[in-house]
Structures are given as C-alpha cells and as structure tokens.
Amino acid sequence: MTQAPILEIRGLSKAFGPVKALSDVRFELRRGEIHALCGENGAGKSTLMNMIAGVLQPDEGDILIDGERISIHSPAAAQRLGIALVHQEIALCQDATVAENIYMAAINSRRAPLMNFQKLYADAQKVMDLLAPIPVRTRVADLSISNQQLVEIAKALTLDCKVLMLDEPTAALTESEAQRLFSIVRGLKERGISVVYISHRMAEIFSLCDRVTVFRDGRYVATDPIATVSPDDVVRKMVGRELTQ
C-alpha cells in the first residue's frame, strides 16, 4: 500500500529579481522517512526549505500538508504546522541557557508576569534527554557545536515537530559526533517523524536515507529509492553529465 505523503510540493517557483532560484519543482516526503535532497550549490535546495519553513513565499505552486493545500506565511505558521528547519548556521542565543533556548518561543509568547523556571528546566531536560544527556542549565556558549546542533533539534521537537529539515547538519561535526547525530535521526524516524536531509556527502546519504531527490539549476531532476541508485548515479544527475574523475 502506498503511503500518502505528509508533505508534498507541486509546481513551486521562486525568483529573486531576474534570477530564477526554483522553476516548477516538485518534492514528496512520506511519513517516517528520511529523504535526502541533493544538488550542487545554487540548485535551489535551501530556497525550497526556506519556503516550507515560512521564511520565503513562493511565486507560484502549492505546498500540501497531509493532502491539504496550505499557505505558510511565517516561521511561526510553519511551527504551528509541525514543520521545523535546523539551519547549517546555529541560530541559538549564546548567552541563554539550553532550557531557555529550547522554550524561547513559549517564553516570548507567555502572558504571565513570572516564569516558573523549575518547570522550564524539568520540561526541557525531558526533551533534551531524548537526544543527549546535556544539562539544560548550561549556557549555550559553553557547548560544543555538535551539542548546540542537538539543542536546535530539541527545540524543534518541543514544537510537536512532524517534519524536520536538516541543512548540512554534519558540516561542523567530527566523525564520532556525526555518527551520534545519525543514530538520533534514525530514532526520530522510528518515532514517526519525517526528515528532509540536505547533504553533499554521499556516504551519509546512502547509509541514512530512504529516498533521494535531486535538483539541478533550480529544477527537479529525479526521485529514487536509495536501494536502486549508486552514488555515481546521484552525482551524474546533480551535474548533468558523465564524470571522469
């Protein structure tokens, strides 16, 4: 039985002045899958993620969640829909604690004049412990880059995240940190969370992902189950020609 996609992109286009970043692209993410999105720099991957995350608005096309056509006017709207984007650049408040960063949106929107920090720390620790035993009273600036990335993911999970988009998540990680991240991503998949995984690293994609979609020059090229293609196939589709080296 074919599973209905949790996220579907149909005919999405986006231009920045005369530059066409995306032209009539499509993409489909199933429930509980890890789906790689590949392409050279400038292929349109980050533009698509930013539109799904409500950072940018499409010029044309449709975004569907659970089969329903929706407009995502802001990052807050994306969060309400259970969509979270973890950027390559860490976007945490360095002087705040892990707990404060995890619940930053809730803190900013609260109406009560006083904050129950004991509850905040207890709730944040429960979420953080799903990923790694990082003490949530720690200042973010005192964490390694890999642990800061895990805080970003924990923050996404508190938003009741259904779709998690990871943009080059291992770019600043060591091999052992990357392996830890992979086991965490697999655990999220087991919990039914769907993951879009952007990476240039073929070894990661082929060990972690279920399917791979390739963009080239702002256009959709192909989607394949990982089991049916080789890294060379994916690279050929990315660059549009045979590689000799």
Results as ranks from 00 to 15, higher is better:
21 A>S: 00
42 G>I: 07
141 A>D: 12
114 L>I: 15
56 L>G: 00
70 I>C: 09
224 D>S: 14
33 E>C: 05
169 P>I: 14
232 D>H: 09
154 A>Q: 06
84 A>W: 10
232 D>L: 15
79 Q>E: 13
23 S>V: 07
231 P>L: 15
237 K>G: 07
58 P>W: 05
108 N>F: 15
69 R>H: 06
67 G>K: 11
241 R>T: 02
23 S>E: 10
126 K>G: 09
119 K>F: 14
146 S>Y: 12
76 A>G: 13
25 V>D: 03
171 A>C: 02
171 A>E: 02
203 A>H: 13
85 L>T: 00
201 R>F: 04
78 A>S: 03
158 T>N: 08
52 I>V: 04
14 K>M: 01
70 I>T: 08
24 D>G: 01
80 R>E: 12
123 D>F: 08
219 R>K: 10
196 V>W: 10
241 R>A: 04
193 I>M: 03
44 G>A: 14
202 M>P: 00
122 A>Y: 11
172 A>D: 12
193 I>D: 01
89 E>A: 03
69 R>Y: 13
146 S>N: 07
115 M>K: 15
201 R>T: 00
233 D>K: 06
224 D>M: 13
33 E>Y: 07
156 A>D: 02
239 V>D: 08
152 E>K: 07
207 S>I: 12
66 D>C: 10
160 D>G: 03
79 Q>K: 15
204 E>F: 08
102 I>N: 01
127 V>G: 02
9 I>M: 10
31 R>I: 14
8 E>L: 04
132 A>N: 08
94 Q>T: 07
194 S>G: 01
161 C>N: 06
90 I>N: 04
102 I>D: 02
52 I>A: 05
239 V>Q: 05
36 A>Y: 11
110 R>E: 08
165 M>P: 01
49 M>R: 09
144 S>E: 10
91 A>P: 00
133 P>G: 06
147 N>P: 03
158 T>G: 03
141 A>M: 15
186 R>Q: 08
100 E>K: 11
218 G>N: 08
198 I>F: 08
5 P>A: 10
175 E>P: 00
142 D>T: 13
116 N>H: 07
35 H>F: 09
174 T>A: 09
95 D>E: 07
88 Q>V: 02
